[in-house]
Amino acid sequence: MAKCAFLGLGVMGHPMAGHLAAAGHEVTVYNRTASKADAWAQQHGGRMAPTPREAAEGADFVMACVGNDDDLRQVCTGADGAFAGMSEGAIFVDHTTVSSAVTHELYAIAKAEGFGFVDAPVSGGQAGAENGQLVVMCGGDQPDYDMAEPVIAAYAKLCKRIGDSGAGQKCKMVNQICIAGLVQGLSEGMAFAEKAGIDGRAVVEVIGGGAAGSWQMVNRHETMLDDKFDHGFAVDWMRKDLAICLATAEEIGASLPVTALVDQFYKDVQSMGGGRWDTSSLVKRLKAFD
């Protein structure tokens, strides 16, 4: 069993840290809102620390799941950052979806200080985190990944190293690019079925087992048809992720016309007050703009 720190106890980090504790690891948590860290410690029997540095002191592995590039830099660097408390040979595992640029930046600092850095964004959403069924896509040095993978297994159904530093984040970009087009297609299909006067649930029962089937179809068609979006992965976070995808595409010369279009559709959803709605709310935009 390992000594772990977990930084960030949002809807993803809270259950992920809980799975580490349940697996027998010794876990210290940090959260910007200290009351959340205290509540986690009382629930799971670990301890809380007032700063990322203090959480990381003596840890074999330091996991982070925060909001964006700036949040990650804040918990990593500076006098109170985790890097200041990490020991030589320890490994930092970043589960945040961020740019590959900040990943390369922090990887270089970590290596210079004598500890590892694995970028390890996740897919599976809140339900995946709660059930310990996340998919984790990793970048970094092979020895660091090999050491971290058995610990990550506490909350992952699949964990794979894609390549060197930044490869995990680039894989997550592919994931979000694919989801963007998929959800828009599903939204159009559900809206079309309603306009055509046929039962959307019956349609999904028939086509869901064929080539049109997807996780999104299975898990989101009913809430889409019921106009319920107060769950799942928020539009605000999806737009943050798609901005990373589009910026990286510009850098490498990749074409993402559908992604760019769907990003603007999500901007429309935000203007409707749906920034915290699930990404499947694209169907609500279709109905509003009909």
Rank of each mutant, 00 (worst) to 15 (best):
L9F: 12
R239T: 04
S255Y: 07
G208A: 12
E188K: 12
A39V: 07
A148V: 10
P121R: 08
L282A: 06
M48C: 13
L158C: 08
V203I: 15
V204F: 11
A156Q: 05
V98W: 03
G58D: 10
A148H: 14
D80C: 12
L286M: 14
V151T: 03
S100E: 15
H14R: 04
E205Q: 14
G209I: 14
A55S: 00
T77S: 08
C138S: 06
T259W: 13
D230N: 15
G85Q: 12
M147R: 15
A260S: 15
D241L: 01
S123I: 02
D94C: 06
R53W: 01
I252N: 02
L186D: 02
A249K: 07
E26N: 07
G213W: 14
G67Y: 07
M16R: 04
G163Q: 08
W277D: 04
E149D: 09
G232T: 01
A82M: 03
L134H: 06
E250T: 10
G10E: 01
G168H: 05
G125D: 06
L158Y: 12
A120V: 00
T28G: 00
A153E: 12
D164H: 14
A212W: 03
E251H: 12
L286V: 09
G85K: 03
W237E: 03
G140H: 07
E222I: 05
A108G: 14
D119T: 05
R220F: 08
V75P: 06
M217R: 02
Q176R: 11
A37G: 07
R220W: 04
D263A: 15
S87G: 12
D263P: 14
E54S: 08
K170L: 15
E205W: 10
S123Y: 11
S99R: 04
K240Q: 03
S255L: 15
G209F: 04
R53K: 10
A82G: 05
A17N: 00
E130M: 05
G78H: 11
T248E: 15
W40D: 01
K284T: 04
G181Y: 14
P52L: 02
I252V: 15
Y266E: 06
K240R: 10
A148K: 05
G10P: 07
G10H: 00
A191T: 07
D38G: 10
R285P: 01
T103V: 03
Y155C: 06
G189E: 05
Q142D: 08
D227N: 09
V75Q: 13
Y145I: 00
A108I: 07
G273T: 09
A23G: 11
K287E: 14
N68P: 07
A156V: 01
A120Q: 09
H231G: 01
L106N: 02
G140D: 05
K3W: 09
T279C: 11
W215K: 15
N31Y: 01
K111I: 03
K172F: 12
A154G: 11
V135G: 02
E222A: 13
R47D: 13
T96A: 01
L20Q: 02
G46C: 08
V269G: 04
T248I: 01
A202W: 11
V183K: 06
V66S: 09
R239M: 03
G125Y: 02
H44Q: 11
A17M: 11
E130K: 02
R47E: 09
D290I: 00
C65W: 00
Y30A: 02
L186S: 01
Q74T: 11
V151S: 04
K160V: 13
